[in-house]
Simulated assay, not measured.
Amino acid sequence: MKTEMHLLDVSQQPTINNKPLSNENIQHGVDTFDEHDTTTNAICFTLRMIAKHPKIQEKLNKNIQNEIEDGELTFKA
């Protein structure tokens, strides 16, 4: 079974399964870290913009309420 390591794990351990780290292992850790950082920034920016515009908040709330079935929010694929 393959276990993925996160960037901080990789930076603290010079080996995986007693084998030296490859450039691919290190690159994967950096890429994963960067993806999480980008997603977090996008979500924070979006929430901040929504918070600054009450009329948009009202429209979003109405749209969400229209999608809620029987008082519960459902996820449709």
Rank of each mutant, 00 (worst) to 15 (best):
M1D: 02
M1C: 02
M1R: 02
K2Q: 03
K2S: 03
K2F: 04
T3V: 13
M5S: 03
M5A: 07
H6D: 12
L7D: 03
L7F: 10
L7S: 04
L8D: 15
L8R: 09
L8G: 03
D9I: 00
V10H: 01
S11K: 09
Q12D: 04
Q13A: 11
Q13V: 00
Q13L: 04
P14Q: 06
I16T: 02
I16R: 05
N17H: 02
N17C: 01
N18I: 01
K19N: 06
P20T: 03
P20V: 05
L21V: 03
S22R: 03
N23C: 05
N23I: 11
N23T: 10
N23L: 14
N23E: 10
N25T: 07
N25V: 01
I26M: 14
I26E: 01
I26C: 04
Q27N: 07
H28G: 00
H28S: 06
H28A: 14
V30K: 14
V30G: 04
V30I: 15
D31I: 10
D31F: 04
T32E: 11
F33K: 06
D34S: 12
D34Q: 13
D34M: 11
E35C: 02
E35Q: 12
E35L: 08
D37L: 14
T38N: 06
T38L: 11
T39H: 11
T39S: 07
T40C: 06
T40I: 12
N41P: 00
A42Y: 05
A42V: 06
F45C: 05
F45G: 00
F45Y: 09
F45R: 09
T46G: 02
L47A: 10
R48Q: 12
R48D: 13
M49K: 13
I50E: 08
K52M: 14
K55I: 10
I56E: 14
Q57A: 15
Q57R: 15
Q57N: 13
E58Q: 15
K59F: 09
K59A: 11
K59H: 11
L60F: 11
L60K: 02
L60C: 08
N61L: 15
N61Y: 13
K62V: 07
K62M: 09
N63F: 11
N63Y: 08
I64Y: 13
E67N: 08
E67C: 11
E67H: 09
E67A: 09
I68N: 06
E69K: 14
E69G: 02
D70F: 10
E72M: 04
E72R: 06
E72I: 05
E72C: 03
L73T: 02
T74F: 05
T74Y: 05
T74E: 09
F75L: 11
F75E: 07
F75N: 05
